[in-house]
Simulated assay, not measured.
Amino acid sequence: MMSYYEPLVYMVPPEEEGFILKTVLQKRLMVSRKLLSRIKLTEQGITVNGVRQYINIKVKAGDRVEIRMEEEASEDILPQDLPLHILHEDEHLLILAKEAGIIVHPTHGHYVNTIANGVVYHWQQAGITCRFRPVHRLDQETSGVLAIAKTPYVHQQISEQMIAHQVKKEYLAFAWGRFEVTKGTINEPIDRDPEQPHVRIVTPEGYSAVTHYEVVEQYSQAALVRIWLETGRTHQIRVHMRHLGHPLIGDKMYTLPEFETSPAAEEAGERLNRQALHAFRLGFVHPGTREWSEFNAPLPADLAGLQAWLQKND
């Protein structure tokens, strides 16, 4: 017997009397064409007043429209009891404060000790059947807010907000050097380095990438910078800050020679074994409540310690 997630419900208002059901699903519940095609194949995927219906019927005022999606499990991910810092969880979303050093999803050579392994175990213990669907990714050495969708509908909704640049993604970073311009925008395209495919570079032939920044605290040799994105290219912040002449502290891949061998860099390296980047805020319209929601992750201990050291040596 099929098991379903909790249905999405929409009550047809008087002004929508006579609308085509497909219009209601796409314009009011914002179901994509791809997801709609998938739901139509489910036995009780689309119902009106409890009765399965074709999407070309006309609805009436007061009709109760429901869509159901089959429960899915991440059967290829090994459940593993790992510590998770849960910021929020409801029937639609799981929001975590990711630690630095952990990979989000299993990859070739990394099948265990990932966020996915811990989340699948957490859901298994709670009796929840969901497929692991991160809405976005964070680099292994980046800490901060991570959103995981529990259904394909929720994943689709937030993904479309990201495409439309409606999701707020804010970061805190510690970058080398003194900033002459303390607030600005970096609008430089990014693509793979043809000589090192795992590395990204600023290049005119690249994909559009826009990063905004503002200095929060300026120290003698570095600064705490608030960064927010319009686009989400791989390594975007790290590449753009290097391009600006202010690479992130601890970022060995995107450093600059003048900072790589300095006494301050050596001492900072003893205190921090990763790039100093933290996703501290994520905001979007919650697909369940239809209200704006923001989730915040406090600065982790290693970065708080780095900040204290920079302030002390200012």
Rank of each mutant, 00 (worst) to 15 (best):
M1L: 13
M1Y: 13
S3K: 13
E6M: 11
L8F: 13
V9Q: 13
E16R: 14
V24I: 10
L25P: 04
R28P: 07
R33G: 09
I39D: 05
K40F: 09
L41H: 15
V48Y: 05
N49W: 02
Q53R: 15
N56G: 11
I57T: 08
V59I: 09
K60M: 13
G62R: 03
D63Q: 04
E66P: 07
I67L: 14
M69V: 12
E72L: 11
A73K: 14
A73G: 15
A73D: 15
A73T: 15
E75W: 11
D76L: 14
D76Q: 15
I86W: 01
H88G: 12
H88S: 12
E89A: 06
H92C: 12
H92E: 14
L93G: 07
I95L: 11
A97M: 07
I102W: 08
P106Y: 02
H108T: 15
V112P: 09
N113G: 11
I115F: 02
A116T: 06
N117K: 06
V119A: 08
V120R: 04
W123Q: 01
G127I: 09
T129Y: 10
T129W: 09
R131I: 09
F132P: 07
P134M: 04
R137S: 06
L138M: 07
L138F: 06
E141G: 08
S143Q: 04
I148A: 05
P152T: 05
P152D: 03
Y153T: 03
Y153I: 06
V154G: 03
Q156E: 15
I158G: 03
S159Y: 10
Q161P: 06
A164Y: 09
K168C: 12
E170D: 13
E170V: 11
F179G: 03
T182Y: 05
T182P: 04
G184D: 01
P189R: 00
I190W: 00
D191H: 14
E195R: 15
Q196R: 15
Q196A: 12
V199A: 10
I201C: 08
I201Y: 05
V202C: 02
T203I: 01
E205F: 12
V210Y: 00
H212F: 03
V215D: 01
A222W: 00
A223L: 05
A223K: 05
R226M: 10
R226N: 12
I227W: 03
W228M: 01
W228S: 00
E230Q: 03
H235I: 02
R238L: 00
H240E: 00
M241P: 04
H243A: 08
P247N: 01
P247V: 02
G250V: 00
T255D: 10
T255H: 08
L256E: 01
P257C: 08
E258K: 13
S262W: 04
P263V: 04
P263A: 05
A264F: 13
E267W: 10
E270C: 10
L272E: 04
R274I: 06
A276I: 00
H278K: 02
A279H: 08
A279I: 07
R281N: 13
V285E: 14
G288Q: 02
R290H: 14
E291I: 09
E294V: 07
N296Q: 14
P298K: 05
P298T: 08
A301H: 14
G305V: 00
L306H: 00
W309D: 05
L310W: 03
N313E: 15
D314E: 10
